[in-house]
């Protein structure tokens, strides 16, 4: 999904390649890019499930306004992944309601 070369913008400038964790699995992304971008590049579409109806949600506005893309990052829920820069070793988890684990 990454654009290797753009006809107007040329090559995209990116930070160093870093490894982070998504639901326990190691994934690579570029340091400093939004977490959501690294997840999109890795094919992850679902960021969370809603509390009442367990519906999937993902990126919607990509500018930190709609809060649809929130996830649990390093143990903290409701982190807007579209505006939170990726760092090496981050622990990113799918959010169910406002917790990490699907309630029974």
């Amino acid at each position: 999904m990454r654009i290797k070369e753009h006809p107007i913008l040329g090559a995209t400038e990116k930070g160093a390649t870093v490894t982070f964790e998504f639901d326990g699995k190691p994934i690579q992304g570029f340091e400093g890019e939004p977490i959501a971008v690294a997840l999109r590049a890795a094919g992850v579409m679902v960021h969370r499930h809603t509390m009442k109806e367990d519906r999937p949600r993902g990126i919607f506005c990509a500018i930190g306004r709609c809060t649809d893309c929130v996830m649990i990052v390093d143990g903290k829920p409701n982190i807007r992944t579209c505006v939170t820069p990726l760092k090496a070793g981050m622990k990113v988890e799918t959010q169910y309601g406002v917790t990490a684990k699907k309630e029974a």
Partner: peptide
């Protein structure tokens, strides 16, 4: 509300700022 339904602004942000296609 399904993941994959996005605002046009989101598409622009993903492509032109972050160098990633929103979809195929």
């Amino acid at each position: 509300t399904l993941p994959g339904v996005i605002g046009a602004g989101a598409a622009q942000t993903m492509m032109n700022l972050h160098g990633i296609k929103p979809g195929s």
